[in-house]
């Protein structure tokens, strides 16, 4: 088993929380894991990505080789396209449909969607709305994780356990909201 995942977004969008949930679940399942993050300057509103590698064997490189990613999980539609050189031909792209516009000349959203539609395996999800419907507008990242979960080689129940663990400190209410968000994302992909 090998699962190479690129998480992408803009600094502050919560991609590291997605990585933490997958990481906790991977450790519980005794899966080897390496996860490279971006800290520092880029976190100030720049593009950020994390390379997350899961395997049943020892993993060498902290970075995913070009053309080898099985999955791109993106908090932002334009950012999902930035990592296409890493996506394998059979890989999946799961992205939020809501743009984060903090630069001049941000391309028209319909043109971005048209580019995403060229990828054979893709899911575009309005995570912001679904998160709001699930009760927490701040859980968009967990919604997207739910939507991507069918393509991650970890049992869904383990991801739920990891959400409980990660948000446990913030109280039962926050845990429930995030579990609902995870499930809502999962249901979206199942449709």
């Amino acid at each position: 088993m090998k699962n190479d995942i690129i998480l992408s977004g803009v600094g502050g969008q919560g991609i590291l929380s997605i990585a933490s949930v997958i990481g906790l679940a991977a450790v519980e399942n005794n899966i080897f894991l390496k996860q490279a993050e971006v800290h520092g300057m880029s976190q100030r509103g720049g593009d950020v990505q994390s390379h997350l590698r899961l395997s049943d064997k020892n993993i060498y490189s902290d970075l995913i080789p070009l053309g080898k990613a099985d999955l791109i999980i993106s908090m932002e539609p334009m950012e999902s396209l930035r990592y296409l050189p890493w996506l394998s031909k059979s890989g999946w792209l799961v992205t939020n449909s809501n743009p984060f516009v903090n630069i001049n000349g941000y391309p028209p959203v319909d043109e971005i969607i048209a580019e995403i539609n060229k990828i054979k395996n893709h899911i575009i999800i309005d995570a912001d709305t679904i998160a709001k419907e699930a009760g927490s507008s701040r859980s968009g990242n967990i919604v997207i994780l739910g939507a991507a979960s069918p393509f991650i080689n970890i049992p869904f129940a383990s991801l739920e356990d990891a959400v409980r663990k990660l948000f446990g400190r913030k109280g039962e209410e926050i845990v429930e909201l995030n579990l609902k968000a995870l499930k809502a994302g999962r249901n979206f992909s199942a449709q």
């Binding site: 509103g45 070009l66 053309g67 296409l84 050189p85 996506l87 580019e115």
Partner: peptide, 28 residues
């Protein structure tokens, strides 16, 4: 991994190119 592959003379199977519409997003 790609730089090392090239140094070893191994092929690099790059995925699709980044579409031209993707803009730089520097820190701000």
């Amino acid at each position: 991994p790609a730089i090392v592959a090239k140094a070893l003379g191994l092929p690099v199977n790059c995925g699709r190119d980044i579409p031209a519409l993707v803009k730089m997003r520097p820190p701000s």
